[in-house]
Each structure stands twice: as structure tokens, then as C-alpha cells.
Design a protein around this nucleic acid. Structure first.
Lengths: 242, 242
DNA sequence: GCAAAATTATGACATACATCATATTTTTAG
DNA sequence: CTAAAAATATGATGTATGTCATAATTTTGC
């Protein structure tokens, strides 16, 4: 972890939501670091020392079960806050944050961050609403994991990534992930993602060129999120279940 | 929804975390209601009018996909806040809250609640930490849905319910749920829960008497949460994966 | 620039779980 | 108290997806 200093005090979640008069205090406390691809910013189980803001690069936030099974909870991009999942009662990170390309992060130690919250009630409220949104999203994904099949979840993953990372000039989703990472984010295995992506390619819903993914028929992808698609509607009778 | 008034201004999340001097204001704004078993306090998709506190009874908070598939996110008991999932950016409930036994709830309208947050920074902070904990829990359950099999998830469900609702004098978990609700909370179907509960009964891990569930071997149930249990450990070699 | 490591590709096979059907028992409402 | 509705019980059957094995290709580190 090498020190580096180039945060602009403008783009991160913290600076965007703090009083202008507080920015100098942040300036005085922040510490910037750069990390290489594959390095972890913190690990699941580590004590929480502070909070991070991503300045450059991409980070995956993930959680393990045993040594093999992994679930990726989110991909962070510049400006995003990282480590907020550790701010609950138990001051231990429930997730690992790993750089998936070279990153620059800004670190704020916990006690200064807590002071910042006290001084900026608006920040606390913003953060509260931010959590509320995250919770909503997490619980929607929970429902999808419980009830949707992989194809629908993959469609959701692709649309989500496209919304969050936009399109590169060439037209592909502007984040390059391994199939394994796509699988871990979707909550399935590499092999299944491989097969379902092939299926979508054959149906011309997407086009895949190495790690570049193009969405060809977004409307059809969105339909995959709907309740199916019933193999055959069976219960035709007028018995309405309330 | 019949009006009824017997909240004590002491036990709910709001009263516990507000300044004593603010309680009279709450007193003046709260409205209590009673509802029958099966009635919904609000529905997924409804606009958020305010927030509720459960005074008496039990409520399930759930989310649907289509008309059949349901996932229960939590069971609320007296003192719990309900409806906080609707406080994100979009003012629409992402869940339904349904009484599973007769309940008394206390309603606080949104604008007064927002004022309360402004006046009680400590409440805002408490609520923020509360969300942080909820998010952590939701994401742990997400991982479990993605990677654990039903038996492990059911073990977790039972231990969770026992921690949250305690034991009745007779020794059973002090909440009486239908198998369908247990299934919806665990993220599976009635039939599967039925079978896995039988299996656990045969193994003497639990004892079931109608809706009363006794945990006989908690240590063994906890072990079911660990990474398996590998059918056979295969890769014996010293190849360590980093 | 090359060896090692990671990623992608793909078929064969196993299985946990959902689905469907139907009967019985329990609970609820009028 | 009784009819209707809900919950429980249980077998038969299908399938989506995980697991395993192995090879080819791409990327990475020195």
C-alpha cells in the first residue's frame, strides 16, 4: 500500500455531502493510497479502522462462505464510499474490498469520521438515506436469489452494470469483468454463467467479445426480470387465489 | 383499521431514542390502530405516508415476485419500527407488512417523523446504525441464499427465531408460524421445509408439536451453518489456493 | 519474451429442490 | 356448531443448476 496524494476534495461521497467550511478539516485528515490489481483494501473480519473513498479505479466488495463460495455485493467506482458496511454495532468488516484494477483510495480514520458526522447533520441524514437505499436494493436481490432463475438474474446483473458504469465509446458496458466475477455477483457458478451467456448470445440479446459485453435487446432483457414466462399456464380455471 | 389508544411512549424505537423533552410532541402526533390477523398495515408499492411502531402482536414483512413467490424479510415484535424500508429516495414501500396475529401499531406521519429526525440528531445516528446492521444482516442472508443449502438455512432460521423471540415457558420457540411462513423466510417452498424439518426431527435436532418447535441440539444446528460437511474432501494435495 | 498463472471453453454426470397431485387434519368465520 | 378455508402431509416426477474433468487460450510477472 503506497502513499499517494491526489484527491480533489470534490468528488467523493464525503466531500459532496459535507459543509464547505469543513473541507479543510477533511483535507488535513485524509490519507491517499494506491493499490495494485488484486490487492485487498480490507478483509472480511478485520477490525474497522476507518472508512474509504474510491478516487480512481474499480473495487469489488465481496463476502465468502468457506474458502470457495463467494458472493460479490457490489462494484465500486470513483466517488463511492467503501467500508460503510462496517459501521454497525460490531466494528468488524462483514466484507472484503478488493481492487480489480489499480485504484487510488482516500482513507479517513473512524474517530475523525464520527466527528464529521456530528458536525454535519446533513451528512448523517444523507448517509442514512443512502443505507436505506442500499437495504432496499439488497433485499430486492435477496428475493431474486430466492425466486428468479439464473437467466433473469444475469439479465438484471447486465442491466445494473450498464446503468452503473455506462457504455464505452465502442458501445460495450464500461466495466470489464471476468466471467467468474459476473457469476459471483449473480450468485451462481462460472460454468452456469458461461452457458447462460452463450444462450443469450445465440438469442442475440447480447454480444460478447472477450470481456466486452454489448446489450443488443434491452427490452427483451428487461422482460426476463418479469415473472415468467410460465412454461405453460396450467391453472386455467376461474379459481382466483387471493 | 380501528383506532385504539394505549401506546406507553416508552417501549418503541422512536421513544427510546428521542429526547425526553420531545416525547410530548410525539404524544400529540401519534395515532394508534389495531388490526386483525391477516390484515396488511401497508402494501408493497404503496406511497409512504409515515412510519409505524409495533406495540402489540407480530407482523411479517415480506416481498413478492409475481403472485405466488414470496420472501419474508423479517418478523417484527413489539417495540420494533416498521416501514423504515420506505425511507429511501423513492417514497414507496418496497415491502408489505402483514399482521400474523392481532396487532396494535402506532403511526407517525412522515413530515413529523422527519422533523423529529432534525430535532434529535442522536435518533438519526441511531437509525443510521440500525440500517447499517440491517444491511449487514441482509447481505449475510443473501450470501446464504446463494451458497448454503436449505438445511443450513433452516437451521439459521430456527436459531434466529429463537434468539429474537426467545423461548416460551414450555420450552418452544416463542413464535408460532405456519410452515409456509417458515419456508418463505428461509427462501424455499413449503414442501421442502416439510421434508427438511422431518429430517431434523428424525435426527433429534428439533422436536415439532404442531406449530411449536423445540431446539434439542443447538450446537449441532450451529454446525449446519458452517461450510460443509464436504461429501468427500477431494482435493487432498498441498495446492493452496490464495 | 517466456514460464506460470489465470481465465475461458465445453462435455458428462449427479442431485437438491421445485412442481404437481391428492388426501387428511386443523382452523376460522358466520 | 358447522361449512368453508387454510394448513399439513406425502409420494411421484422433472429440471435447473452444481460438480467434475480436461483442454485451449489469454494474461501476467519477472
Amino acid at each position: 500500500m503506497k502513499k499517494y496524494n491526489d484527491c480533489d476534495l470534490k468528488s467523493c461521497f464525503l466531500c459532496r455531502n459535507s459543509l464547505a467550511s469543513w473541507l479543510p478539516a477533511i483535507e488535513g485528515h485524509k490519507r491517499n493510497f494506491i493499490m495494485r490489481k488484486g490487492e485487498a483494501i480490507f478483509h472480511e473480519g478485520d477490525g474497522v479502522k476507518g472508512i474509504y473513498f474510491l478516487y480512481k479505479g474499480t473495487v469489488k466488495v465481496h463476502k465468502r462462505w468457506g474458502s470457495e463460495k463467494e458472493l460479490i455485493l457490489s462494484f465500486a467506482k470513483p466517488g463511492d464510499i467503501i467500508g460503510y458496511r462496517g459501521l454497525g454495532n460490531e466494528k468488524v468488516y462483514p466484507v472484503t474490498a478488493t481492487a480489480i484494477e489499480p485504484v487510488t483510495v482516500c482513507f479517513i480514520d473512524l474517530s475523525f469520521f464520527e466527528t464529521t458526522l456530528e458536525v454535519n447533520p446533513r451528512l448523517t441524514l444523507s448517509l442514512m438515506k443512502f443505507y436505506a437505499n442500499e437495504l432496499q436494493e439488497a433485499e430486492r436481490r435477496m428475493r431474486n436469489l430466492a425466486h428468479m432463475e439464473v437467466k433473469g438474474r444475469l439479465a438484471e446483473t447486465l442491466l445494473h452494470l450498464r446503468n452503473r458504469f455506462g457504455l464505452a465509446k465502442e458501445g460495450y458496458i464500461d466495466i470489464l469483468l471476468t466471467r467468474q466475477d459476473i457469476a459471483s455477483f449473480t450468485g451462481t457458478t462460472y460454468e452456469t454463467i458461461f452457458r447462460v451467456m452463450n444462450e443469450m448470445s445465440e438469442e442475440k440479446l447480447i454480444r460478447v467479445q472477450g470481456k466486452k459485453i454489448f446489450l443488443l435487446k434491452e427490452a427483451k432483457l428487461e422482460k426476463l426480470l418479469d415473472v415468467k414466462n410460465l412454461p405453460q399456464a396450467r391453472k386455467e380455471g376461474p379459481q382466483k387465489k387471493k
